[in-house]
Simulated assay, not measured.
Amino acid sequence: MSDDESDAGSQGEGAGLGSYDGERNEQKERHGKGKAILPNGDTYEGEYRNGKRSGQGLYRFKSGGKYQGEYLDGVKHGQGLFVYPDGSQYEGQWAKDQRTGEGTYTYVTGDAYKGLWEKNVKHGQGTYTYKDGTKSIGIWVHGRRQGSGEIFYNGFTYRGMFHANEPTGDGTFVFPSTDSSEPMEQTGEHIVVMPPVRDDDEVENADIRLEDTQRRWRPIEVGPPGYKSEESPASAATLS
């Protein structure tokens, strides 16, 4: 199951839906601790309040997934662990049946995101760690990298701005020290390179599509970490 797939079995079970073995209140509603088998084959074991799942519980999906954690008024709300049928999992905060708050999602690829969520998407400060150890730290807005951030890869560090998941504008690479050199810092900028348009292209085919553009790193200067100066006209002419 993908990390944005909706979850079945979120609402409370009404009378006559599946089987139930457990405590009830004076109104004969499921209330207290109990175990239910739903018509679709899913099961729930945990706490109820006035006919709805509320409190701690374990919900097992017939498909193989499971959720263990807090419920409120029949939906996931509070702290909980959701293990999806494909092996990916999310552990963290929920609000009104959606990943909202702080939590960690581990993907089947071995990648993981730890940070803030809102309505099932990454939103706020977080860290995305790739299987190979690369880390991307910064801010997500509605599931996409936005604003300032850092990338750590194989000893190298990049600091700069991001827009719609892509690095943009000014940035800095920091190179680690080696046996023969001290750490070095390279400042530069990401520029957008537009695809060429051939003279014989039809007018309707000459539109430049966003996905055809490329971002290219344009270095400006190199120096020890923390060293920055204004780009000189000579260096600009050399690099252009």
Rank of each mutant, 00 (worst) to 15 (best):
Q125S: 11
K66G: 08
E29D: 14
Q68N: 12
R198E: 13
F82R: 09
K228H: 13
Y59C: 01
I220C: 12
S235Q: 14
K228N: 12
I191V: 15
D199H: 05
F82T: 03
V203E: 14
D179Q: 10
W140N: 10
H142Q: 13
G22K: 00
L58K: 06
R30L: 01
S235I: 12
N120I: 02
V121R: 04
G92Q: 00
S88P: 12
L38D: 02
Y128K: 03
I220K: 12
S2N: 11
R99F: 15
G124C: 09
K131A: 14
L239P: 13
Y44I: 00
K96D: 15
H77D: 15
G155D: 04
E182L: 13
G110V: 01
G169W: 06
A206S: 15
G57W: 00
R216S: 11
I139R: 14
G149F: 08
I151A: 02
G160K: 00
R99P: 15
Y59H: 09
Q11K: 12
G14R: 06
I220R: 11
G69S: 01
E45V: 04
Y227L: 08
G46R: 00
G126Q: 00
G110Y: 01
F156T: 07
G51T: 03
G226L: 06
E231A: 10
A36H: 01
A164P: 08
K119G: 02
G14N: 08
E230Q: 15
E47R: 01
E204P: 02
P85L: 08
D7S: 15
G16F: 05
G103K: 00
R209V: 04
G171H: 00
E189T: 15
P219H: 06
E189P: 09
A237Y: 08
V75M: 07
G80R: 00
S180C: 09
T129V: 08
G188R: 00
D111S: 05
P196E: 01
L17M: 13
D21M: 03
K135R: 13
Y67W: 06
A8K: 07
T238A: 15
E45G: 07
A95D: 14
G74R: 00
V141R: 11
G87D: 04
P224Y: 13
A15Y: 09
D212I: 02
T134H: 09
G143C: 06
V197S: 08
S19G: 05
G147S: 07
K122E: 12
G87H: 07
E91S: 05
G103F: 01
G147A: 08
E29A: 05
Q27K: 07
T238N: 14
E26C: 02
G14I: 02
Y84P: 05
K66F: 12
N50I: 01
